[in-house]
Amino acid sequence: MDTHKGVLVVGEITEGKLAPITIELLGAGRKLANELGEELSILLMGSKAGGLGQEGIAYGADHVYVAEDTLLDQYNSEAYTQVAAELCRKALPSIMLLGYTDVGCDLAPRLNGRLGGGLAMDCLALSVDPATKLLVSTRPVFGGNAQATIVSKVARPQMATVRLKTMPPAERNDSRQGKVIPVEGKIDPSALKVKVVERIKEETEGVKLEDAEVVVSGGRGIGSAQNWGMIKELALALGGAVGATRPACDEGWASVSLQIGQSGKVVSPKLYIAVALSGAMSHISGHLGSKYIVAINKDKDANIFSVAHFGIVGDYKEIVPALTAKLKELKSK
């Protein structure tokens, strides 16, 4: 096992820059590497990845592995798996970190399957056990009702995908030194059995859910598509985004792309307003990172009040329009 050393982050590039999750992973990876007294590396894939080498170093990487290939410009499950697996077999990292993102959710399990490592998905915390020097990953289980710590005693690499915005981003230091190492190795195009036919971006009205500072969510209690308009208006008044619980999406009041929770999106806005939703753990786990949570619910015993900072017990049909009106009034002043 001593054959495996160091922490390797699999980076993501969005719009020519390191993705925010990657900077957060570098921050977490740096901490782990320091505790182990080992090095931190990052793998960047894409035809222009080399240009980001210095940035990777500035954010804390000792080595930046760069795999430049146009086949890697957009995420391709098999191509990414091949390159990353190949690198792992050579660099033999002890710990490997990915984001719990579209890429990480697909790549990490696959890579793990190929490498035979030990993977924990959707981690909220990472640490090194001082005694065993093993990676301890904390992740929600049972729809967020509980948290489990996961350890890989023998399998290597120890892998984790990390939830967005759960770890502080690395600080940039342009004076840091490090090496940019090109990754040799060709992708076998015949192995790319799954072809991407098209990628469709869905324009969301208003603010994007993941980026929103304010999210207003509704649940099954809203009762009808017509009343769903109240949620939208409140979000609009706050300049925020609309979210929904699974039942609300199932009812068709909101598009599934707005679903927040275990099987939907994870958000951590400054303010999260939960309207007429009881607070199933599988939903709550998707917005627990919010700075302030406000609950509006008819049932004073609803679980959502156990995680909310502020709440009103009452009929949302009376409260939400009044709240929207008052907020508009305050804004206009």
Partner: peptide, 30 residues
Amino acid sequence: AHTEVTGLSVPTRKTECEIIAGGTPGEAAA
């Protein structure tokens, strides 16, 4: 085993929810 569960806990949340009151639902909302 590749992975092992070494701990399981129910996270305690100590959020104190402040219930906003008001004479009418409208007042509470304001």
